[in-house]
């Protein structure tokens, strides 16, 4: 009986947690819907207003993150090239270096590392900014002026965020693939033409689709969670760091889970195409 009680208690706990996660996910999705709806219905909000917030978001999220992304991309690309070329040479498959780089950098590390950088830099900034706006009654003031916060604050941040994440991920991959090769040039005797040819042969149209899906949706996830958490602040400034932390944790969980799911679907699809499944 004690064992049964323990098991039921554990199952109850798992069930409660699952319901919490489902409820949270639904609320976040509802906010995506309401933001898009508000942006479409808001006749007053011209493209100029949206463009100014979107461009500011791209500047803060994309442009200002470039030095950090450059450094991480160079390091990641360099490490993967060194490790993979050394191992592949031992196996006599040096021409596979391009495939390995595409799989590791373009399909996996590029989207994931970019998302983590954006969460750390911009997800926190957006959550705390909106949280502080709640405390200072700026959100209420917008509503009082007839400005829908969902179309004025949330929607442009999602759009700016998606554009930034896509551009940053592309930049990360480019720097990791090419810059990584160049920084390891002095200890790696692989000819560039050989490396470039191997890379060109490795890219497929499916990689482009996977890249766009992973990074586009990661951008949506990061910024919608940051905005949602920020708007959860009620009245007190001490709530701001709490919602910021929650935004980071939830964004990481949702982005990594989403990336894992996309990768799984991608490989299942490939196995089906090969007739293995």
């Amino acid at each position: 009986m004690p064992l049964a009680r323990f098991l039921f208690r554990e199952i109850d706990g798992i069930g409660r947690r699952a319901i919490e996660i489902a409820s949270y996910t639904l609320q976040v999705l509802q906010m995506v819907y309401l933001s898009v709806r508000a942006a479409i219905y808001d006749q007053a909000q011209g493209l100029r207003t949206v463009f100014s917030v979107v461009s500011a978001q791209i500047y803060f999220t994309g442009w200002q993150a470039m030095p950090l992304v450059t450094m991480l991309a160079l390091a990641t690309g360099g490490i993967v090239i060194l490790q993979s070329s050394a191992q592949l040479s031992l196996l006599g498959s040096a021409e596979m270096v391009g495939n390995l780089m595409v799989v590791i950098i373009v399909r996996e590390l590029g989207p994931l590392v970019t998302a983590l950088i954006v969460i750390a830099r911009s997800g926190t900034a957006v959550a705390s900014e909106i949280g502080n706006m709640r405390v200072n009654r700026e959100i209420e003031a917008l509503e009082a002026m007839g400005i829908n916060p969902l179309s004025y604050i949330v929607f442009p941040r999602i759009v700016g965020g998606v554009i930034s994440v896509l551009c940053l991920a592309f930049y990360f991959c480019a720097i990791a693939l090419l810059g990584g090769f160049l920084v390891t040039r002095f200890i790696n005797d692989m000819p560039f033409a050989f490396y470039a040819d191997s890379l060109a042969n490795a890219f497929t149209a499916a990689d482009v689709g996977l890249f766009l899906a992973k990074n586009g949706f990661s951008g949506v996830i990061i910024f919608i969670i940051a905005c949602y958490q920020g708007l959860l602040v009620q009245q007190s400034a001490h709530e701001v760091p709490q919602v910021t932390t929650k935004a980071v944790v939830n964004s990481i969980i949702y982005v990594t889970t989403f990336n894992l799911g996309m990768t799984t679907l991608f490989y299942l699809n490939q196995l089906m195409a090969l007739g293995i499944l």
């Binding site: 219905y41 808001d42 200072n136 700026e138 009082a144 007839g146 829908n148």
Partner: peptide, 24 residues
Amino acid sequence: MAFEEFLPYRKRIGYGFDYGGLLA
């Protein structure tokens, strides 16, 4: 009323806050 339905009324209502309310 949805936000956009209430908007014509909202534009005719001026609200002054007891504190805060200005965009920082």
